[in-house]
Structure formats: structure tokens, C-alpha cells
Simulated scan of single mutants.
Amino acid sequence: MYIGLGIFLLVVGAILLFAVPSAVVAGVNLSVIGIILVIAGLLAIVLSFAMRGRNNRGYTATRQSTVDPATGTRVDRTDVDPG
């Protein structure tokens, strides 16, 4: 999820940094905002890769197979506990 946000911030920051290097809007230097957005985008991408495996708790599945005595067919039952 944060990879998309990081790429978006990186692209917007690069546009502000390289496409409009000398523009100043109402006392705000757009190049500085571009640098901040590029750093934030890179940080979001790095953190998304670092946190990728931490929320993977997995699940527990219990499978039971029996034969119905009345019909002779096999009955499968699977219980999933989302851990």
C-alpha cells in the first residue's frame, strides 16, 4: 500500500525539483518542497519493504475427513482459524 504512495510522492517531488527549479510561489520555494517529497517518497518505499513480513501472522487450518454411514460418501470439513 505504501509503495504506491511512495512512488506518487517521488514523482511529484521530482517534478517540482527538476521541472520548476527556480519557481517561487508566495514565498515558498518549490525546489525545497520537491526535495522533501522525494525524501518522503523514498522513505515510504523503504519502510513498505521493511514492514512487508511483519503483519503476516498466517492462519491455522484443521481438516477432518469422515465417511457418512448412511450414504457411504466421504464428507470433508475444514475449519480455518485466522490466527
Results as ranks from 00 to 15, higher is better:
residue 1 M to P: 10
residue 2 Y to C: 09
residue 2 Y to G: 15
residue 2 Y to V: 06
residue 3 I to L: 15
residue 3 I to H: 09
residue 3 I to F: 12
residue 6 G to E: 07
residue 8 F to S: 12
residue 8 F to C: 07
residue 9 L to G: 12
residue 9 L to V: 00
residue 10 L to A: 11
residue 10 L to Y: 09
residue 10 L to M: 05
residue 13 G to F: 02
residue 13 G to E: 00
residue 13 G to W: 00
residue 14 A to G: 09
residue 15 I to M: 07
residue 15 I to E: 01
residue 15 I to Q: 01
residue 16 L to C: 05
residue 16 L to A: 03
residue 17 L to H: 13
residue 17 L to K: 10
residue 19 A to C: 01
residue 19 A to I: 00
residue 20 V to I: 11
residue 20 V to A: 11
residue 21 P to T: 01
residue 21 P to H: 08
residue 21 P to A: 00
residue 22 S to N: 14
residue 22 S to Y: 09
residue 23 A to C: 00
residue 23 A to V: 13
residue 23 A to G: 00
residue 24 V to H: 06
residue 24 V to S: 08
residue 24 V to M: 08
residue 25 V to N: 05
residue 26 A to T: 04
residue 26 A to R: 07
residue 27 G to F: 02
residue 27 G to N: 04
residue 27 G to V: 00
residue 27 G to C: 00
residue 28 V to K: 04
residue 28 V to G: 03
residue 28 V to I: 12
residue 29 N to G: 03
residue 29 N to P: 05
residue 29 N to C: 03
residue 30 L to Q: 00
residue 30 L to W: 02
residue 31 S to Y: 02
residue 31 S to D: 03
residue 32 V to W: 13
residue 32 V to A: 09
residue 32 V to I: 12
residue 32 V to H: 05
residue 32 V to L: 05
residue 33 I to V: 13
residue 33 I to Q: 02
residue 34 G to F: 00
residue 36 I to V: 12
residue 36 I to S: 08
residue 36 I to Y: 02
residue 38 V to Q: 00
residue 39 I to M: 08
residue 39 I to Y: 07
residue 39 I to Q: 01
residue 39 I to F: 10
residue 40 A to I: 08
residue 41 G to C: 03
residue 41 G to I: 00
residue 42 L to Q: 01
residue 43 L to R: 12
residue 44 A to Q: 08
residue 45 I to M: 10
residue 47 L to W: 13
residue 48 S to N: 14
residue 49 F to H: 11
residue 49 F to T: 08
residue 50 A to C: 01
residue 51 M to Q: 15
residue 52 R to A: 15
residue 53 G to I: 09
residue 54 R to C: 08
residue 54 R to S: 12
residue 55 N to Q: 14
residue 55 N to M: 15
residue 58 G to P: 02
residue 59 Y to A: 13
residue 60 T to E: 14
residue 60 T to G: 11
residue 61 A to W: 02
residue 61 A to G: 08
residue 61 A to T: 10
residue 62 T to C: 01
residue 62 T to G: 06
residue 64 Q to I: 15
residue 64 Q to M: 14
residue 65 S to R: 15
residue 66 T to F: 11
residue 67 V to M: 09
residue 67 V to I: 15
residue 68 D to M: 08
residue 68 D to W: 11
residue 69 P to Y: 09
residue 70 A to K: 10
residue 70 A to I: 10
residue 71 T to N: 06
residue 71 T to D: 04
residue 72 G to K: 04
residue 72 G to T: 07
residue 72 G to V: 04
residue 72 G to R: 03
residue 72 G to Y: 07
residue 72 G to D: 06
residue 73 T to R: 13
residue 73 T to V: 13
residue 74 R to W: 07
residue 74 R to Y: 03
residue 75 V to T: 11
residue 76 D to S: 10
residue 78 T to V: 15
residue 79 D to L: 15
residue 79 D to Q: 14
residue 79 D to V: 14
residue 80 V to Q: 10
residue 80 V to I: 15
residue 81 D to R: 14
residue 81 D to M: 10
residue 83 G to D: 11
residue 83 G to W: 10
residue 83 G to Q: 13
residue 83 G to Y: 13
